[in-house]
Design a protein around this nucleic acid. Structure first.
Lengths: 239, 239
DNA sequence: ACGTTTGCGTTCATAGAGTTCACGGTCGGA
DNA sequence: TCCGACCGTGAACTCTATGAACGCAAACGT
């Protein structure tokens, strides 16, 4: 199956939303997101299903659906189940004003990748889309997982709460500095080397590097060969 | 809907697993877990579906299904989709030796709450079950979410920062590396060969190989024939 | 039976990871 | 303006994962 690889032009998104104003806003948000491409905007379950069918038949299946749950002709999660049963591979971000927690659970079992409460800010959607892109990337890149860790990492990308605000103890300028240093170093760097290059201590550099790893923007691998504890080599990972 | 609240006796679990030995083991693990209750063990998609139907009809729907993906009469994820379409609310933890990352993605869209790679330790399953219990708790307690935070919190419970604690002196990346090298080598490897392939010394390789043997994931046997002390040949044990 | 040969298994030095804690700076409140 | 709380940083320290060296065990050959 596989819902396409996002194509050269980015990840294709269908917006399904009852309210025309919200629908336009969501579509706009998606368009603004680099790497994403709004391919359609519909206002009902029926239209959504037809749109997805047509897209699939045309050989350009929709990668991601931004799905409002309360629609005039049915419930979004029911549509979701129908899609699965019909073999559609599109991923779904549920968008709803329903604050019912049982709904969250149903959404998870229906296979939504994210659950976003309305009203939401552009920043909130941005965060979710970015996470989704990384999730997709982490699963698309390698064909085989080397271990449970890799699987967990992918799940974490979908399910870790927003990190737009940095964890305590980290500052944005330093993060930028460390990140750019790492990005420049094609071959990868040790914490000590990164620190030296960024003008901070090894300890501080490590803190930020670990953060980058946690958020999926960097990877690390041990460097064997010489005697002594292996050196950890951090490497910039796309995005 | 709501798949029951786990009842007074805990969360009811159905184990679906082809291999009788593994099935028994998983069932035992579940039984040992406080707050969980293994209510059945079946070995095929068909039996699983029938079991779930019967349980639902009896007014005691199964809360959680431990689902192997490769089953004699079909694929676990297909069963999963069938269940959703039929309105079953049971949550699913996928259990599989498939290391294909595309499968992970399909599993997410089919609505699994966790994805566990075989072979796994009792501790790993324990961790997943405990997380699931908390997830369920967080969604069951309050009827209404106060905000996005609460939803995110629930999603986060399904992610796994848990590092399965290795014995002192061993590191997760190295273990992954050695394990995957061994898995690839169908014919078996000596410690020296494994080390060379994984980029570590024979000594280090041996450490991890021994660990794999200890935890039952590998076996070793002496290789006779030539002059000198016999070479130990390590072999991955698919289980 | 005894020596030869080969690689196992152990001990230990080592280099870097990871942690703890105290310091300087900054921001908000009184 | 002064004071207190907090936050980001780095120095010192402890711990851990690694490989080199070395002795020993186990098979074969004569």
């Amino acid at each position: 199956m596989t819902a396409g690889e996002g194509g050269r032009d980015g990840i294709s998104v269908l917006v399904v939303e009852d309210d025309p104003v919200a629908a336009a806003a969501h579509t706009l948000y998606v368009e603004r997101e680099p790497g994403f491409r709004a391919v359609g905007t519909v206002h009902s379950c029926g239209d959504a299903l037809r749109f997805l069918e047509r897209a699939r038949a045309a050989g350009a299946p929709v990668d991601l659906t931004l799905l409002d749950l309360y629609l005039p002709d049915g419930h979004g999660l029911q549509l979701c189940r129908t899609l699965r049963a019909a073999g559609h591979g599109t991923d779904v971000i549920a968008v709803t004003s329903a604050r019912d927690l049982a709904m969250v659970r149903q959404a998870v079992s229906a296979g939504v990748v994210q659950y976003l409460l309305k009203p939401f800010s552009a920043a909130a959607l941005h965060d979710r889309l970015e996470r989704y892109a990384r999730y997709r990337d982490s699963l698309g890149r390698t064909g085989e997982a080397t271990g449970q860790d890799e699987v967990d990492q992918a799940f974490a990308l979908l399910r870790t709460p927003e990190r737009s605000s940095l964890p305590k103890g980290l500052s944005a300028p330093t993060l930028d500095s460390v990140a750019s240093v790492l990005r420049e170093a094609a071959t990868g760097l040790s914490a000590a080397a990164a620190g030296a290059a960024a003008g901070v201590s090894r300890i501080t550099a490590r803190r930020y590097l670990e953060h980058l790893v946690d958020t999926g923007r960097a990877m690390r691998e041990p460097q064997y060969g010489s005697v002594g504890r292996p050196e950890l080599c951090y490497r910039w990972k796309g995005r």
